[in-house]
């Protein structure tokens, strides 16, 4: 049975596209057939992060409007045979995605792939609700910072009310992916602690992705970080998260946010 996963956040720029590419590549490397779908119509970026920008011919809007077949729009990754991309359109307006059209595309993708990973646009508008509409599981990408946590809370509310699963009265499987995590700043008490974010949002933790130059480098090169720098800290964190998604038990130790302790504790009150 195919799984449809939405990568969502509410707030922009927290790492949805990065995470979609990294998790998609990690799942595909484990042999699963994966299609990552860009729902950010008008602001597509997943093609760039995946290094496929020059191979885009047709996009999801062309498919929905009947100008192209799904198989014509899907781009197969050059490095990983089981990894595929369905790009968003760059130019047309946001209303180009019809609810029925999206439903049909997702239905077709379910037949072809093991995992369909939808990269949501930021915000809580139509684009975001369309991206989450058919999901079986949601990865809520959050930075340990007040506005991101607040927006994630909003998105969790939408996942529990505006999705097909919620409307059927089923429970949406939601997992927290804490990204751009800076252990130094956490230890100094400048960044929300993992356990506090978990307590506030009260959904299970899928993984913690450290803030890292490797992520920037990967997107510069157009290679998901799990493919380009597989031994880097963020790549390993993404691979572990992907393994948890397929049901493997992978230990996750919460970072001890008070670790650089004596200094942090003695001078904690001065942290801004």
């Amino acid at each position: 049975m195919a799984k449809v996963l939405v990568v969502t956040s509410g707030k922009g720029g927290v790492g949805k596209t990065t995470s979609t590419a990294a998790l998609g590549a990690a799942l595909a490397m484990s042999g699963r057939k994966v299609c990552v779908v860009d729902f950010d119509v008008g602001l597509r970026n997943l093609d760039l992060v995946m290094g496929a920008e020059r191979r885009v011919v047709f996009d999801i809007v062309n498919v929905i409007q009947g100008d192209a077949k799904l198989s014509q729009a899907i781009i197969r990754d050059k490095r990983i045979e089981t990894l595929h991309l369905l790009p968003a359109s760059q130019t047309r307006d946001k209303d180009a995605l019809s609810a029925e059209g999206v439903a049909r595309v997702i239905r077709e993708l379910r037949e072809k792939f093991d995992w369909v990973i939808c990269d949501s646009p930021a915000g809580i508008e139509r684009g975001a609700t369309l991206a989450m509409r058919h999901a079986d599981i949601a990865v809520v990408v959050t930075n340990p910072e007040v506005s991101s946590v607040r927006d994630s809370d909003r998105i969790i509310g939408l996942l529990d009310s505006k999705t097909e699963k919620a409307e059927r009265g089923e429970r949406m499987d939601k997992r927290l992916l804490l990204t751009r995590y800076d252990s130094g700043r956490a230890a100094r008490g400048e960044m929300l602690k993992t356990e506090d974010v978990l307590e506030i949002l009260s959904i299970p933790l899928l993984g913690i992705i450290p803030e890292s130059q490797d992520v920037l480098k990967a997107s510069n090169l157009g290679t998901p970080v799990t493919v380009g720098s597989p031994t880097s800290a963020p790549a390993r964190a993404y691979v572990d998260a992907a393994r948890r998604l397929i049901g493997e038990k992978v230990d996750l130790t919460l970072p001890d946010d008070r670790r650089s302790s004596l200094f942090g504790k003695l001078f904690g009150r001065r942290a801004a």
Binding site: V146, G189, E190, R258, K265, G268, A272
Partner: peptide, 11 residues
């Protein structure tokens, strides 16, 4: 002491 850091206020 460490509660006084801004992260605690944020929470």
């Amino acid at each position: 002491f460490s509660r006084k850091a801004s992260a605690g206020v944020a929470r």
